[in-house]
């Protein structure tokens, strides 16, 4: 373990110092856009689990970081097939016409800790584009069992569905809230210069709990 610690220190310190921008690819198996909305008195929640895109992180100057992400609307799951079908229908998200939600960041304001800040960008949802701003947090960086390097990100925001023309023309109009609480959990894998996944050089050996590798 100590050996690994020392080797990784030697390996990563120069990387962190010289590589200004690190490019990461969003891992859609480990990324989630969860949402909650008021229903009558309770809250119903669901998730979009197919998120793709790129995250460029500049750790020295976080404000130079960028993110672009696309969510496949059909990856919606509210754990109830009839409701999913209803949400995807013309009455709400109209998924056949608007298959993707797209977010492109335009500005990042970093906090002092350089691990969090406020992100501003253009969100396209239901065919309408709006500027949104929200606080985000870098949860951390770590090596996974396949010697790939990962970053974790978290963000929380509130969207008004009426801003995106989703009026919810349904018999339950006044029973479903306008405000959607969104919680984003992203995990992204570092890319190397040639576009593939960056990998810890094979010469270094790492102890990995074997049971964790066969997911």
């Amino acid at each position: 373990m100590l050996k690994w610690f020392i080797t990784s220190m030697i390996l990563f310190f120069p990387l962190q110092l010289y590589a200004e921008v690190e490019a990461f690819q969003i891992d859609n198996a480990h990324s989630f856009a969860k949402w909650q909305v008021r229903h009558v008195v309770g809250k119903v929640s669901g998730v979009f689990s197919n998120i793709t895109g790129k995250v460029n992180i500049n750790r020295q100057q976080l404000e130079k970081s960028q993110i672009s992400a696309t969510i496949n609307v059909f990856s919606l799951d509210s754990y109830h097939q009839k409701r999913d079908a209803h949400i995807l229908s013309k009455k709400i998200l109209d998924a056949t016409q608007f298959k993707f939600m797209i977010f492109e960041s335009t500005q990042v304001v970093a906090n002092e800790d350089k691990m969090s800040g406020i992100m501003t960008g253009q969100l396209t949802l239901h065919g309408m584009t709006k500027e949104i701003s929200f606080p985000f947090k870098i949860l951390g960086f770590a090596l996974d069992p396949w010697q790939h390097y990962r970053v974790g990100l978290q963000a929380q925001l509130i969207l008004k569905r009426s801003d995106f023309g989703i009026q919810g023309n349904t018999p339950y109009t006044n029973q479903v809230g306008n405000e959607i609480e969104v919680a984003l959990f992203l995990e992204a894998i570092k890319l190397s210069i040639n576009g593939g996944f960056w990998q810890l050089p094979k010469t270094t050996k790492i102890d990995v709990n074997p049971s964790l590798t066969n997911e």
Binding site: H30, K34, L139, A142, G152, F185
Partner: peptide, 10 residues
């Protein structure tokens, strides 16, 4: 927490 990110489920 899963590696660096948060894994969400229900």
């Amino acid at each position: 927490r899963n590696v660096a990110g948060l894994l969400a489920g229900a």
